[in-house]
Amino acid sequence: MKAIILSAGRGSRLLPLTDTLPKCLLEISGRTVLSLQLDTLAACGVREAVVITGYMPHLVEAEVEKASGIKVRTLFNPFYHIADNLASCWMARGEMQGDFLLINGDTLFEEALLRDVLAVPPNGISVTISKKNDYDDDDMKVTLNGEALTAIGKTLSPQETDAESIGMLRFTGDGPSRYVAELEAMMRTPEGNTSWFLKAINAVAGRGEPVTTCDITGRQFAELDTQEDYRALQEMFRSGEFPSPAPSR
Results as ranks from 00 to 15, higher is better:
2 K>S: 12
6 L>E: 01
6 L>S: 00
7 S>A: 15
10 R>Q: 15
10 R>P: 13
13 R>Y: 05
17 L>W: 00
18 T>A: 10
21 L>E: 10
23 K>M: 10
23 K>L: 15
24 C>E: 03
26 L>F: 05
29 S>D: 14
30 G>N: 13
33 V>D: 13
33 V>Q: 08
33 V>H: 09
34 L>I: 11
34 L>K: 15
35 S>F: 00
39 D>G: 14
40 T>A: 07
42 A>M: 06
43 A>F: 06
43 A>R: 15
44 C>Q: 07
45 G>E: 15
47 R>N: 08
47 R>V: 03
50 V>E: 08
55 Y>G: 07
57 P>W: 15
57 P>K: 14
59 L>D: 08
61 E>C: 06
62 A>T: 03
63 E>H: 12
64 V>D: 07
64 V>W: 05
66 K>I: 04
67 A>R: 11
74 T>H: 04
74 T>M: 08
75 L>H: 11
76 F>T: 09
78 P>F: 06
79 F>N: 14
79 F>H: 13
79 F>V: 09
84 D>R: 14
85 N>S: 09
86 L>Q: 04
86 L>P: 00
87 A>K: 07
91 M>N: 12
93 R>M: 14
93 R>S: 15
94 G>F: 11
94 G>M: 14
95 E>G: 07
95 E>H: 14
100 F>K: 04
101 L>F: 07
102 L>K: 07
103 I>G: 03
103 I>L: 13
107 T>H: 01
108 L>A: 08
108 L>I: 08
108 L>C: 09
109 F>T: 03
113 L>M: 15
113 L>A: 08
113 L>N: 02
114 L>P: 02
115 R>H: 07
115 R>G: 03
119 A>E: 06
121 P>I: 12
122 P>S: 05
123 N>E: 15
125 I>R: 12
132 K>I: 08
132 K>M: 02
133 N>M: 05
137 D>P: 00
141 K>I: 04
142 V>Q: 02
143 T>A: 11
150 T>L: 10
152 I>G: 01
155 T>G: 08
157 S>T: 13
159 Q>H: 09
165 S>M: 11
165 S>E: 02
166 I>W: 01
169 L>F: 09
169 L>R: 05
170 R>H: 02
171 F>W: 05
171 F>Q: 00
173 G>K: 08
174 D>F: 13
176 P>D: 10
177 S>N: 09
180 V>Y: 12
180 V>I: 14
183 L>Q: 07
183 L>E: 02
184 E>G: 08
186 M>Q: 06
187 M>A: 14
189 T>N: 03
189 T>F: 03
192 G>W: 11
196 W>I: 11
197 F>I: 15
199 K>V: 08
200 A>L: 09
201 I>A: 00
202 N>Y: 02
202 N>I: 00
206 G>S: 04
208 G>C: 05
209 E>Q: 15
209 E>L: 15
215 D>H: 12
216 I>G: 15
218 G>F: 12
218 G>I: 05
219 R>F: 03
219 R>T: 01
219 R>W: 02
219 R>H: 11
220 Q>L: 12
221 F>P: 01
227 Q>T: 05
227 Q>P: 03
227 Q>K: 01
228 E>C: 07
229 D>T: 01
231 R>L: 12
233 L>Q: 10
236 M>G: 02
237 F>H: 05
238 R>I: 10
239 S>C: 14
239 S>I: 10
241 E>P: 00
241 E>C: 08
242 F>K: 00
242 F>N: 06
242 F>I: 07
248 S>C: 14
249 R>I: 04
249 R>Q: 10
